[in-house]
Design a protein around this nucleic acid. Structure first.
Lengths: 194, 194
DNA sequence: GGTTAAAGCTATTGACAATAGCCGAAAGGG
DNA sequence: CCCTTTCGGCTATTGTCAATAGCTTTAACC
C-alpha cells in the first residue's frame, strides 16, 4: 500500500473543498478519507480530532477572506473602499459557504495562530473605516455594525431566506449604500443615554 | 410503568428548554428522554425524527418571536416602533439562543404551518416599515436590510464575537440608530446601476 | 543495509438516531 | 363492569459516526 502523501494542510484543504460541496455540518471523516484515497482512521495521523479539522478549515478560511478583502480595498478609500470590500465579502461567502461559516468560528482561548489570523482579517475592515475619522468606541461601534450588516445578509442569502422575486443583488447594493449613509452621520447617531 | 403523559407539544416544549441550555446542536434524544422520564425510543411515539423535532422547535420559536415583536410594536410607529422592535428582538434572542437559531430555519417546501408562521412573523416587520411609505421593491429591500442588520448583530453577540471592552448595548443602540438614519434616506440611496 | 519514525491498516468501542416487536395501561362500548 | 382495542411505554438491535488500540509497512537517514 503506497503512501498517499497526506499532510495536515492537504487534509484541511480537501476538507474545505468537501465542506463547501456538502455543507460544513455534513463533513465526515469517512467521506473525507474516501476522497483522499485512505481509510478513515488514517486521518488521525494528520489531525487530532474533527473539531481540530474544523479549526484548521477556519484558520485557512480567515486567511483567504482577509486576503480577498485586502485585495478589494487596495487603491480605494472611503465609501468606495467600503463598497468594494462589501461586494468582495458577499461574493467570496457565496462561492465558499462552508469556508465562510468556518471563518466565523471563534478562536479557542490561547490559540495564538487562530487569534492572529482572526485579528488580521478584522484589521482590514478597521483600516478602511479609518477614513471616516472614527476613533475609540465610535470606531468599534462602526466596525461591529459593518460586520453585523454584512454577516446577516450573507447568512440569510445562503439560507435561501430571500425568496421574493425582488433582485437580491439590488437589495445588497442598497444595504451597503444605506450603511454608508449611516456612517456619514455616525457622530450624529449617538443614541440618547437609556 | 405509569404513563408519562407526553404529547408532541410537550416534547417540543421541553426540547426547546433543553436546547436553550445546551445548544441546538447538542440536543440529543437520549438527554431529552431522560428529562422527560422516559426511554429514548419512546419519544418516537410522539415525533417522527430528530429533524421533525427541530422543525417543531422552529415553528414554536417563530410563533413566540412573532408575538414578542408584535407586542413591542403595539402603540408605536415609525422610528419608535423600529427601535422598540429591535430591542425586543435582541433581548428575546439573547434569552433563547437555541430557539432563536431554530427560528431561522427555512420551512420545508409544502409545510404549510411552518410557512404560515414564518410569514406571520415577517409580516410584523413589514407592517412597522410601512410607516416609511416604502412600496414594492423599496420595501422589500428595506425589510431585507433590517432583518440582516439585526440577525448579524445577534449572531455575533451570541457567538461572543464582540470581545472588546466597548459596551455592546451601546453598539446595538447605534446600529439601530444608524439603520433608522439610512431608512430616512432610503429613496435617495438607490445605488447607481452597476 | 540496518535502524527507526512516520503513515498506513484492521478491529473495536461508545455515542447517537432509528426500527422492530412486545406488553401493559387506559378508554369506551356492550 | 368486563372486554376489546388502541396507544404509550418498554427491551433489543442496527447502522453511522468519531475515536482509540495495536499491528505492519514504507521511506528517510546514518
Amino acid at each position: 500500500m503506497p503512501r498517499a502523501g497526506l499532510t495536515r494542510d492537504r487534509v484541511a484543504q480537501e476538507a474545505a473543498v468537501m465542506a463547501d460541496e456538502v455543507g460544513l455540518g455534513r463533513l465526515t471523516l469517512a467521506g473525507l478519507a474516501e476522497r483522499l484515497g485512505v481509510r478513515q482512521p488514517s486521518l488521525y495521523k494528520h489531525i487530532d480530532s474533527i473539531a481540530s479539522l474544523r479549526r484548521d478549515i477556519s484558520v485557512q478560511a480567515k486567511r483567504e477572506l482577509g486576503e480577498v478583502l485586502a485585495r478589494a480595498a487596495v487603491g480605494r478609500s472611503g465609501a468606495d473602499a467600503i463598497s468594494a470590500m462589501s461586494h468582495a465579502y458577499r461574493d467570496w461567502a457565496g462561492r465558499h459557504p462552508a469556508r465562510y461559516e468556518a471563518s466565523n468560528l471563534m478562536p479557542a482561548p490561547g490559540d495564538v495562530e487562530d487569534e492572529t489570523v482572526s485579528a488580521t482579517a478584522i484589521q482590514v475592515i478597521t483600516d478602511v473605516l479609518t477614513a471616516y475619522r472614527l476613533e475609540g468606541d465610535d470606531a468599534i461601534d462602526a466596525i461591529r455594525a459593518f460586520r453585523s450588516t454584512l454577516h446577516g445578509f450573507v447568512v440569510y442569502e445562503a439560507a435561501g431566506a430571500f425568496a421574493l422575486s425582488a433582485d437580491v443583488d439590488r437589495s445588497f447594493d442598497r444595504l451597503v449604500a444605506g450603511f454608508i449613509v449611516a456612517l456619514g452621520q455616525w457622530n450624529e447617531t449617538v443614541p440618547p443615554v437609556r
